[in-house]
Design a protein around this nucleic acid. Structure first.
Length: 482
RNA sequence: GGUGCCAUACCCAAGUGGCUAGGGAGCGGUCUGCAAAACCGUCAACCCCGGUUCGAAUCCGGGUGGCACCUCCA
């Protein structure tokens, strides 16, 4: 299976091959655990999971690293602004360490609910302080570092290729003047190590060769990726917002510390989830939606995964409740359609080995289409369309279709072999519930005596109460509308 | 001020020069007492103006509109 990926480095589609045959080193920027992840954050991890699964489907072993940022950083390059971890602690009356533990757990729960594959490593920034200090020492010994009153800074002037990755023109960059220069020599210089303020203790601080303080904003990704994957990554993922600052700085400090060895060969950047009024969803602007809110509204986490699968990772996706509902309906109908196909396949291979079931010509054609879609920059929406079409292709037997779809689920990650658990029952008070049960029972009685007008009259009464009755082989079932 | 991205039917969304994307909603039908589900069928689009070409949603130029990044952010 051939795989091409859009590489931000060069901004074009490039045929992918890992540095070491058969193994892919993939680093993905993870969350800062000062608050819940919102569904926009989660879209990126879902898309990265599609990439990971596509790589594995193509036969690679993936050394997948996702960091947990549990160190607070300041909101600006000078000493203004708040430390997000400390702000979270103050907000909730807990210690920064409690905050980190709580939101890390919440994040891992979301990860599991979205059926994302576990990374090979989940490094925490606070567990890699020594490696970050070492990185700064390597830079210092090579002359890329200078010291100001508040910390150690990377001198971007010493790295001529600094702006290349993001296409930055440093002379034009700061015309908007939103960055405080402070004691820095150049506006684009960034902190490698910050000193703790002399007058107060920080909740998180460490000893270093330069004094007590904490690491700069970008050091952890460079230090941890080098420690767990190596100096050159095959793939580095993140959101588009990270291109300008975070990833540009990662490249600068990593390549300068490693005497020019390339930091990452492929850069994959995920586009944002937008809200209906065209804003990106962001934590700093106040209100945001979590996966839990979706679940509370009766959606399944995999409904959201399916929603993500409907758009390509390099395109904006517009979130709205009707859009999510449309995805949910499509997802549920897809599963219902697949059920008999999967059953047919499971039944047909009872007691036989898979080698008995060579692909038919028809299956080979579908398989080729599916792999081609994945190979074209992980085009999951296209692959999903192919899966939908295959499900309805009457030229193949149910078992033939079931086999392919079950196989493709290794990439789609919808856990199709399992039934989706029923949504939690709506909360109703006992009186109301009894009243509805009585009406449903009355209708059942009318149906049994074939009194159709009476049965329909009761259905209407129930409809007025926003109750929908569905007749099933095992009897009527009722639920609230919507 | 700089840089980049986007515009496809009612909605979401693939598609980078000729070949029905797909889904949701709608509509018609089959099947069910009626519904629901399922299945079958159906509908419609390429922001505007030029250009290149036998042929443009796709390439080029110019508009218009929207967004993002340059501050922590996926």
């Amino acid at each position: 299976m051939k795989l091409s990926l859009h590489n931000t480095l060069g901004r074009r589609l490039q045929s992918f091959e890992p540095l070491h045959p058969g193994v892919v080193g993939m680093y993905c920027c993870g969350p800062t655990v000062y608050h819940y992840a919102h569904i926009g954050n989660l879209r990126t991890y879902v898309n990265e999971d599609f990439l990971r699964r596509s790589l594995e489907y193509a036969g690679y072993r993936v050394n997948h690293v996702v960091n947990i940022t549990d160190v607070g950083h300041l909101t600006s390059d000078s000493d203004e602004g708040d430390d997000k971890m400390e702000k979270g602690a103050a907000r909730e009356g807990r210690t920064v360490w409690e905050i980190a533990a709580h939101y890390t757990n919440a994040f891992l729960l979301d990860w599991q609910r979205l059926n994302l594959l576990q990374p090979s490593h989940w490094p925490k920034a606070t567990d890699y302080i020594a490696q970050q200090i070492q990185l700064v020492q390597e830079l210092e010994s090579r002359g890329f570092v200078y010291r100001t009153s508040d910390g150690l800074y990377f001198d971007t002037e010493k790295f001529p290729a600094y702006g290349d990755f993001a296409g930055l023109r440093l002379d034009k960059l700061m015309a908007g003047v939103r960055v405080e220069l402070g004691d820095k020599k150049n506006p684009s210089d960034f902190a490698l190590w910050k000193f703790s303020p002399v007058d107060k203790r920080r909740a998180m601080e460490w000893d270093s060769p330069w004094g007590v303080g904490f690491p700069g904003w970008h050091a952890e990704c460079s230090a941890m990726s080098t420690a767990l994957i190596g100096r050159t990554l095959d793939i580095h993922c993140g959101g588009t917002d990270h291109i300008r600052v975070h990833h540009t700085n990662e490249i600068a400090q990593s390549e300068c510390a490693h005497d020019g060895e390339p930091f990452a060969r492929f850069w994959i950047h995920n586009e944002f989830l937008k809200t209906e009024d065209s804003d990106k969803m962001s934590k700093s602007s106040g209100e945001f939606l979590t996966l839990q809110v979706l679940i509370d509204r009766g959606f399944h986490a995999l409904d959201y995964r399916y929603f993500c699968a409907t758009a390509h990772y390099r395109k904006f996706l517009t979130f709205s409740w009707p859009n999510l509902e449309a995805a949910r309906d499509a997802h549920r109908a897809f599963r219902r359609r697949l059920k008999p196909l999967l059953d047919a396949w499971n039944g047909s291979r009872q007691g036989e080995t898979d080698s008995v079931h060579e692909f038919s010509e028809g299956q080979k054609g579908w398989q080729a289409q599916f792999e081609e879609a994945l190979g074209q920059d992980v085009n999951i929406p296209k692959a999903l369309g192919i899966a939908q079409s295959l499900a309805r292709d009457g030229n193949l037997t149910e078992a033939q279709r079931g086999r392919l779809l079950l196989d493709w689920d290794a990439v789609l990650g919808l856990d199709l072999a399992q039934d989706l658990p029923d949504p939690p029952p709506a909360i109703v008070d006992a009186d109301q519930s009894a009243h509805i049960d009585a009406l449903v029972a009355a209708r059942t009685q009318a149906r049994e005596s074939k009194d159709w007008p009476e049965a329909d009259r009761i259905r209407k009464l129930l409809a007025d109460l926003q109750v929908v009755v569905t007749d099933t082989p095992t009897g009527p079932v009722w639920a609230f509308k919507g």
